[in-house]
């Protein structure tokens, strides 16, 4: 019982800690963007978001307690999203916009 309480206390501390990191990182990224510090804002906020997503998944969703199959599935889903976005964006970058007259 004592061990359980100790474990729970640790978990409470851990969760609150993750929450603090999430909130602070959101505030920091806002400041960085508004101050115009980031060289490539889009890449910067995407990286921050991926970092936050990893924290949420690992702790609030308990992903770290799952087996390799669930971990692999989650990562594959994310990877496929990246593939879709990369292919869609690179495919269209070189297109020539053109609107016929009339």
């Amino acid at each position: 019982m004592k061990a359980e309480i100790a474990l729970n206390t640790r978990n409470v501390v851990l969760y609150v800690g993750v929450w603090v990191v999430l909130v602070v990182s959101a505030i920091l990224e806002t400041i960085v963007i508004l101050e115009g510090i980031a060289v490539n804002p889009l890449a910067f906020v995407t990286s921050v978001a991926i970092f936050q997503a990893a924290l949420i998944a690992l702790f609030f969703q308990h992903l770290r307690e799952e087996g390799f199959a669930i971990k692999g599935m989650t990562i594959s889903g994310g990877a496929l999203v990246a593939v879709l976005i990369l292919a869609a964006v690179t495919s269209v970058l070189t297109c020539t916009p053109y609107f016929p007259a009339g």
């Binding site: 806002t30 906020v45 949420i56």
Partner: peptide, 15 residues
């Protein structure tokens, strides 16, 4: 739900 918002907020509100 939270993860999605972690992307929505910066991508729409900030950049």
């Amino acid at each position: 739900v939270e993860i999605v918002w972690a992307f929505v907020f910066p991508l729409f509100y900030l950049v």
